[in-house]
Amino acid sequence: MKIAVIGGTGLIGSQVVKILNAAGHEAVPQSPSTGLDLLSGRGLDEALEGADVVANLSNSPTFDDASPAFFRTTMDNLIGAAAKHGVGNVVILSIVGAELVPDLVYYRAKVLQEDLLKAGPVPYSIVRATQFFEFIPSVMDWVVDEKGVHLPPTPIQPMASADVAAQVADVCAGPALNGTRQIAGPEVFRLDELGKITLAAQGDQRPVVTDDTAGMFAAAPGDALIAKEGAVIAKTTFRDWLASRR
């Protein structure tokens, strides 16, 4: 099976390409470095030529008000090209609970991306994942001041990017879902508690300040970011992931 992996040189895409090729598929990474510009459509015909499946793992370069326009334009271009080339499955990666966090424009943009795909003429699959372990340090960097690391007590259920990639690859290798697969980590944490665990593992003595207003995840109400019933639960725990990176 030939699979075009847009964003195939990124954190998730590069792992998806490796998994699929190891399984005997022909997974071809596509990105600006290979001549593909999803915003303009340049290189799309070449990228999708002969492809049975296309996985769109590209992302908006910003999380601000420009993100909806990015996803609208890129999805319009991709869906049109996929229909033209007879692609049998268009796969995207989205976020668990995105529709439950309307105060975040980026989350609204991801819901828009899903809706455009659902309304299009091509078979599709949506993989909705929880937050990645790899992004936790960046989340903490956004909310640092002289008093410490400010984090809200928002419940999250994070997972390793390797587990995300394995699920995306599995969906790419199978028939189109024409629906959504939810995936999540095996543990639920409060974000402020996760910050304490992370700092302790790094030998970082900075305190974590519980702050209901700190950072983007403060906008997530209740259990919005926790996987719903029927989700596929990954096996890698956060502490095991931390240990593997030492």
Results as ranks from 00 to 15, higher is better:
Gly185Leu: 12
Ile233Lys: 13
Val122Pro: 05
Ser14Pro: 01
Asp65Trp: 03
Asp115Leu: 12
Gly88Phe: 00
Ala169Val: 03
Gly203His: 10
Ala82Tyr: 03
Glu187Trp: 10
Ala27Asp: 00
Ser33Pro: 03
Asp103His: 09
Val232Ile: 14
Ala83Tyr: 00
Pro175Gln: 13
Lys196Asn: 08
Gly174Pro: 01
Asp211Asn: 09
Ala162Ile: 07
Gln113Gly: 12
Gln202Cys: 10
Val28Gly: 01
Asp37Met: 06
Asp76Met: 04
Asp65Met: 04
Pro221Ala: 12
Thr198Arg: 12
Glu114Tyr: 06
Met75Cys: 09
Pro175Val: 02
Ala51Ile: 02
Gly230Gln: 11
Arg108Phe: 07
Val188Leu: 03
Val144Gln: 15
Ala200His: 01
Gly86Thr: 03
Ala51Gly: 06
Lys2Asn: 04
Met75Glu: 08
Val209Thr: 07
Thr213Gly: 11
Asn89Gly: 03
Ser94Gln: 05
Asp145Gln: 06
His25Gln: 10
Glu114Cys: 04
Ala83Cys: 03
Met1Pro: 08
Glu26Val: 05
Ala184Glu: 02
Glu49Pro: 00
Ala22Phe: 02
Phe133Ser: 08
Asp37Arg: 01
Arg72Asn: 03
Ala200Pro: 00
Val127Phe: 09
Ala234Gln: 07
Leu78Met: 13
Phe135His: 12
Leu225Asn: 11
Gly24Tyr: 04
Ala220Asn: 13
Val87Asn: 11
Gly148Gln: 13
Arg246Cys: 01
Val91Gly: 06
Pro175Ile: 00
Leu199Ser: 13
Gln157Asp: 14
Asp45Val: 00
Leu57Val: 07
Val53Tyr: 06
Val16Ser: 04
Ala119Cys: 10
Ala98Arg: 15
Lys110Asn: 14
Glu26Lys: 07
Asp163Arg: 04
Ala22Met: 05
Lys2Asp: 12
Glu26Asn: 02
